[in-house]
Every structure is written in C-alpha cells, then in structure tokens.
Design a protein around this nucleic acid. Structure first.
Length: 410
DNA sequence: AAGAATAATGACCCTCGAGG
DNA sequence: CCTCGAGGGTCATTATTCTT
C-alpha cells in the first residue's frame, strides 16, 4: 500500500511519520495548499478528494492510503479560553464530514501574562470535549483531542514553570521537528498509538469497512471515555462559550422578522418553516472571520444536528451580527447592533470574484493558468471565496445583519 | 469590589502579484 | 529581478461581562 502525507509544515509531518508506523511504510510527502483564495498558483493541483476536505478549512496534516484519506491532524498552541478553543473546529468538521478521522492537538492550558497581573494559566474550555463527542455520535468517525504537552500539571503555579518563553508549552527538542509537540510526552505517545491502530484497521479491512470499525476500537473507546471525563472534571456545562451567546426561540419570530423581505411575488421557502424552533448565534461585532467560523460549526453539532447533513437539523441555525431583542408582543425580533453591516459580507463575496479568471478570453490565459481556469469552470468560485464566507454560508441557514439578511429556501 | 471568564479586536506572519 | 502592498489567515491581548 502506498501512503501519501499532505502537510502544511514539513517538520510536523516528519514528527508524525517518525513517531508512528508510517516510518516503516512506502510513502511520499506532499505540500498542501489551502485554498484558491490564498494560493492561486498551486491550489488547483490538489487532488479532488483533498479539495473536498479543504472546502471548509485546511488541517495541518492529511494522511492517505492509495488516494483514500485515513486521518487528519490539527495542531494549536493557543490558549483555549472562551470561544478561542473552537477556532479550529470547522477543520475537524470538514475532515469528519468526509468520513476522515480527525486528531486535534490542543494545550490543556497556556501561560498568559496580562497587564498588571502575574502570569497565569489560561485553561481550555471543556465544552470542546462535548462538541467532539457529538461529532462522533453523528458521524461515527473518531474526532479525538490530545493535550499539547505543557507544564500545567507539574507546575500549577504558572510563575514556577521553567518554560515561560513558550507559554509553559513543551516542544520537541529535535530541530528537525521544529514547532512540534514534545514527542516523548505521555499524551503524544497515546496519540501515536491511536494513529497506529487506525492505520492497522484500514490496512486490514480497507477504507470502507475500516471506517465502520473505528469507533469500536478499544483505543478509540478509551480516549473517548477520557474526553468525557475531562468535560466533567473541568466543570463543563452547556452554558459555556460559545453556547452562552446563543438563544432558542420559536421559528415564527424569525419568519415574522423575514417577512419584511416578502411581497406579492415571493414568500420564504419551506426549509426554515420545517423546524419549530431556531437557534440564534449572537455576534455583536464587526463582520470578520476567526474565531466565529469555528464557533458556528461547533454550535451546529452541540445544538442543531441530528444527521449527517445540514438538512437534518432539529433547529434552524442562524448567525446574527448583532444583539437580539425579543419582541414577544409582535412575535418578532429586533437587531439593535451597529457594528455588523451586510455590505461587509457582500464586499467579501465580490472580492472573491477578483480571483476568478472565468471572464478571460482564451488568448489571455497563460498556459500555466489553464488548469486553474479549468478547475474554476467546474467549481466556479467554490474554492476562491475566503474561508469565513465559505464556512458561514455552509453552516448558517440564515445570516442576519441589522441592515440586511441572507437565508436559504431549501 | 475583585477576580475570573468570555467576547472582541488589534497585530502579526505568509504568499502572491503588480509595478518599477 | 526586487520591493512592497494587499489579502488571507492566525494568534494574543485588551475590553467587557459575569460571578462570588
């Protein structure tokens, strides 16, 4: 069997290869390009099945056997307070939604020094464990979190950590693995073990049958149990960020609000009406990307989804760029916000059109541009929109701004 | 009122491509 | 061919809100 390892950073790919059974396999390493929006020169050279995973957001590593992806890995060293822990969540979703197991490496805590205060540990938001568990329940594909090694457990007092310069986080000393986690750490050993198990399952049963067996693997079960325990031990509950910024109200309020866009020739379609209640994610900020795309994806899994596609939702999922006032008398809502503007969304969409070369004459297309042109012929602007536009419009049934709205009819 | 937790935003890095 | 600005993407710190 031939392995291919797609990477964003090569040292991290070597780190994973050298610490797992991959080192004994026949493999090639290839650089992964994230999107047509940020790498116009090379993105079109990605194989079609890799493009599908990249559609929402790009992970750090994808491993495949004979052109079938078998797992992806995402690494972060960021302090995971509030909604920051969910910043990379759309990547995990993109992987799992394509039936590819996802590994997430994230620090249990990181040292942050704020103005006029001594250094302290910023701890991971445990709700991420619940979100990952819900993803596993819905897709029957592993989505496992391993702690990026740190001094947190050995030095609960942040000022005593010997690694202040790295926020208390422990990197591998091998220079060939620069920027990778400490490979000898127990968490990483567990992760390599799980990767080896997944490789073995796919080798023995093939990719189709193998996928069905993954959640029943004892190593995967054990990790899932650990993650559920961590959620409980760290005091996780369902009113933590980002769920603390959501409200659930009858869909009729949304329909009444959107009725301002209806007229004699148009009425809102059946999709929104098909669900009795609607979840609103209130973002009272200027329109932008991170950390909101990941948080929106997480809310979908935590509250709305009951099946594999966004059509199988218990509740509508609506992203509102504003606070929301509920008007019970008129069964509608008001958006008092002033920062979010529908034109900011529309301008980001328009900007992506500048990346498209579909309006060119053949004579004006350079030879090296032809494969990119041909990709765009097939996919339009699918891959040339910026990430947050792709993610928002994939997950949200409607996006509301104080001065405009977008919604699906079906 | 202080401290903790969360939400928002400022700032940085990387890549590409236009133009000198 | 080199420089530099724009755009895309990422991360840390500040601002705000919540809790005790």
């Amino acid at each position: 069997m031939n392995f291919r390892i797609w990477y964003s950073t090569e040292p991290f790919a070597d780190f994973v290869i050298d610490n797992t059974e991959l080192r004994n396999k026949t493999f090639v390493k290839k650089k992964m390009y994230e999107s047509d929006a940020n790498n116009a020169k090379n993105f079109h050279t990605m194989p079609d099945h890799i493009k599908k995973i990249l559609y929402l957001d790009a992970p750090d590593l994808i491993v495949e056997i004979d052109h079938e992806p078998i797992f992806s890995v995402e690494v972060s060293t960021e302090a995971g307070t509030g909604h920051n822990a969910f910043q990379r969540f759309a990547r995990l979703a993109a992987s799992v939604e394509n039936n590819v197991p996802a590994f997430y490496i994230y620090p249990e805590a990181a040292i942050i020094t704020r103005q006029d205060t001594p250094p302290k540990w910023d701890k991971i938001n445990p709700l991420v464990f619940k979100a990952l568990d819900d993803v596993m329940s819905i897709y029957n594909i592993p989505a496992l979190l391993y702690y990026y090694p740190s001094d947190y457990r050995t030095h609960p007092d942040a000022s005593t950590s010997a690694n202040q310069l790295t926020k208390g986080i422990l990197h591998d000393p091998n220079r060939n693995y620069s920027g990778s986690p400490l490979g000898t750490d127990a968490e990483m050993a567990d992760m390599f073990n799980a990767m080896n198990e997944i490789i073995a399952v796919f080798e023995r049963h093939g990719t189709v049958k193998g996928r069905e067996k993954l959640l029943g693997n004892r190593t995967v079960i054990a990790r899932r149990t650990f993650m559920n325990q961590e959620f409980a031990n760290k005091g996780g509950h369902l009113n933590m960020s980002p769920l603390s910024a959501t409200i659930k109200i009858p869909t009729q309020y949304l329909l009444n609000y959107l009725s301002q866009f209806e007229n004699a020739n148009y009425s809102i379609g059946e999709l929104l009406r098909s669900r009795d209640e609607t979840i609103f994610y209130k973002v009272n900020a200027a329109f932008r990307g991170d950390p909101y795309p990941g948080a929106l994806a997480a809310i979908d899994y935590l509250l709305c989804r009951e099946g594999k596609s966004f059509e199988e939702r218990r509740f509508n999922l609506v992203l509102a760029w504003s606070d929301i006032n509920i008007d019970d008398a008129n069964q509608t809502i008001e958006l008092p916000g002033t920062k979010g503007k529908v034109d900011d969304f529309v301008r980001a969409v328009q900007a992506s059109e500048n990346k498209n070369i579909l309006s060119k004459d053949y004579a004006d297309i350079a030879n090296h541009e032809i494969p990119r042109y041909y990709m765009q012929v097939r996919y339009g602007s699918t891959y040339s929109k910026v990430k947050h536009i792709r993610v928002f419009s994939y997950f949200a049934d409607a996006i509301l701004f104080p001065d405009g709205a977008l919604w699906r009819d079906a």
